[in-house]
Nucleic acid binder design. Sequence first.
DNA 1: GAATTTTACCTTAGATAATCCGGAAATGAT
DNA 2: ATCATTTCCGGATTATCTAAGGTAAAATTC
Lengths: 154, 154
Amino acid sequence: MSDIDKIDRKILAVLQADGRIANVELAEKVGLSPTSIGERLKRLQRDGYIEGYGARLNPQMLGLGLLVFVEVLLDKTTPDVFERFARAVRLAPEVLECHMVAGGFDYLVKARVADMSAYRRFLGESLLALPGVRESRTYAVMEEVKRDAPLPVG
Amino acid sequence: MSDIDKIDRKILAVLQADGRIANVELAEKVGLSPTSIGERLKRLQRDGYIEGYGARLNPQMLGLGLLVFVEVLLDKTTPDVFERFARAVRLAPEVLECHMVAGGFDYLVKARVADMSAYRRFLGESLLALPGVRESRTYAVMEEVKRDAPLPVG
DNA sequence: GAATTTTACCTTAGATAATCCGGAAATGAT
DNA sequence: ATCATTTCCGGATTATCTAAGGTAAAATTC
């Protein structure tokens, strides 16, 4: 599975916490020269361990104060519904995540909007407007207990 | 609410897509000098729009091939259950997100584990072992249609 | 088991980028 | 219109990245 050693894991852990850290500083933290770090970084990126880097923004500050999860059931008699639903969801900017799940429903959608009225609009005009959507259950988040934790690499 | 202008939004959009971009390159993209970009960045960070930077890792490559969502119901007769549950969840490395929701259940947990047997262990030893957990429903993800989309800043 | 290749690492030096400072231009308020 | 504030830029300094060359250890081959 993984041919990465302890140093690689340390690098990944540090980079998850601070993706913009300078190479020299990262080198100090893991006890290697900046050059070696650079080579390891390039390898980790080439082999697909690191997919990219991103800024973590504060949703509240950007007027996206409401986080919602929506369970969606599709009408499986219509053909193409899954593909069409997936395509539409990828285009909707409010949708941060969408997963096809095994269990009582078909898709679990995670979306961020400004407030409840914005959500009503999104639900009616984006989600339920799609053909083949048979049922939906909305769960509004009251408190985010844990948000976007780093992957355990240790 | 937001006193950030179009240039700030552009900066945030670019940084979400590539958090490790060089300042000079970012400056070219938004049509400003690197010095000004630096000042804006510092302000965006100080005011809390940018909470940090992180590397995006590939869960599969790290042996975390299974993504699950768990709906958890708590026994509200026991005191402190919410606080204790929240504390435990924050400490569990498998749990990437946990939200208290309004609706048919109390908490929605998002977790990544190696496989089903690892999940069984996590569910039994970490989640259900907590006092006050009355019921849980697990939904295993079969396909990740949309993953970690950037926040709409436009 | 010895020779060879490969790999990982370090140091150095030259290129590149970030930061600090002073001043100019734009913006806004009185 | 004037003053104050903010935003921006250019140049100098400092820090960082990157590429080249060299060494040692490990893996591979014979």
